[in-house]
C-alpha cells in the first residue's frame, strides 16, 4: 500500500519535473533545429535539412564583428562590475555603518527597474551629456543594472564570512593589506567568481539596454532582433544558437573551474 503510494509519488515527481524542464528548454532547442534548414524561409517543421546557413554565418565578417562587440562589452562590464560589486558587497554585508540599511535597499532597486525604461533614460542622459553612443556607452548602461546584481550575488557570500578570520590574521602580525590579500580576498574568491559569471552572462545576452545605448555599434542580441523584424534568413537561428551555446560554454566552463578551485583547496591528504 505505502509502497505503491511511494512509487506513484515518484512517477508524479518525474513527470512534473520533466514537463517543467521541457517547457524551459524546448524553445531553445527549436532554435537549433530551425538553424539546420536548407530553405530560405522560416518554416516549422523543417522539410529539408542543411548546414549552408551555418557556414555562411560563421564566415560572415559582420557576424564576427558583432560577436567581437558583444564580447568586448561583456568583458569590460565584468571587470568593472566585479570591482564595484566586491566593495559594494563588503559595505552591504560585512561592515556596520550609518546608512547601511538604506544603502542595502537602494542598491538593489535598479534590478527591478524595467530595463527598456532604464535604457531610454540612459539614452536621454548620454545625449544631454553629449556622449557619442557606442559600445562604451553600452558598458555604462549595462553597469547600471548589472553592478547591483553582482553586488547582491557577492553579498550572499560575504554574509557567511567570519570576521574573526581577519582579526586572527591581524593578530598574527598581518598588516591591513596583507590581511586583505592573504585572507579576505581568497576566502571570498568563490563569490567573486560567481559574481563575474553573472556579470558576463547578463551583459552578453542583454537586449533592452543595448538597444538604446550602443549607437552605431551592434551587439548580437540587437542584431538578432533587427534581422527578425526585417530581413529574416536562417542565419538568425544560427546566430541565436551560437549566442546561447557561448553562454552555456561560459557557464559550464565556470562550473568546472569552480570545481577544480574547491578541489585544489581541499587537497586530500
Amino acid at each position: 500500500m505505502s509502497d505503491s503510494n511511494y512509487s506513484v509519488r515518484h512517477i508524479l515527481i518525474g513527470v512534473w519535473t520533466a514537463a517543467v524542464l521541457m517547457f524551459v528548454f524546448l524553445p531553445s532547442a527549436t532554435i537549433l533545429i530551425a538553424s539546420m534548414t536548407a530553405s530560405r524561409y522560416f518554416t516549422f517543421p523543417i522539410t529539408a535539412f542543411g548546414f549552408d546557413w551555418w557556414s555562411k554565418t560563421i564566415n560572415s565578417l559582420e557576424v564576427r564583428s558583432l560577436a567581437y562587440t558583444s564580447l568586448s562589452i561583456a568583458a569590460v562590464v565584468t571587470v568593472i562590475a566585479v570591482v564595484l560589486g566586491f566593495f559594494g558587497a563588503l559595505a552591504f554585508a560585512r561592515y556596520d555603518w550609518r546608512g547601511r540599511k538604506l544603502y542595502q535597499k537602494f542598491i538593489l532597486l535598479p534590478i527591478f527597474f524595467p530595463q527598456s525604461v532604464l535604457g531610454l533614460a540612459l539614452l536621454l542622459w548620454f545625449n544631454a551629456l553629449g556622449f557619442t553612443l557606442s559600445w562604451k556607452t553600452a558598458v555604462l548602461a549595462h553597469l547600471v543594472w548589472i553592478a547591483p546584481v553582482v553586488t547582491l550575488v557577492m553579498a550572499i557570500q560575504v554574509y557567511s564570512f567570519d570576521p574573526s578570520l581577519e582579526e586572527a590574521a591581524t593578530d598574527l602580525g598581518a598588516s591591513r593589506w596583507q590581511t586583505f590579500r592573504e585572507v579576505t580576498l581568497p576566502v571570498l574568491m568563490p563569490g567573486i567568481f560567481s559574481g563575474s559569471l553573472f556579470a558576463f552572462l547578463l551583459s552578453w545576452g542583454n537586449f533592452p539596454l543595448s538597444l538604446f545605448t550602443t549607437g552605431a555599434d551592434n551587439t548580437l542580441p540587437k542584431y538578432l532582433y533587427a534581422k527578425m523584424v526585417a530581413g529574416y534568413t536562417p542565419g538568425v537561428p544560427v546566430l541565436g544558437t551560437i549566442s546561447t551555446a557561448a553562454a552555456a560554454i561560459v557557464l559550464f566552463g565556470g562550473y568546472v573551474a569552480m570545481l577544480l578551485l574547491t578541489r585544489n583547496r581541499k587537497a586530500a591528504l
Partner: peptide, 8 residues
Amino acid sequence: QSLALFPH
C-alpha cells in the same frame, strides 16, 4: 572561540 582557522 570560533578558532578562526583559514578555511582556504
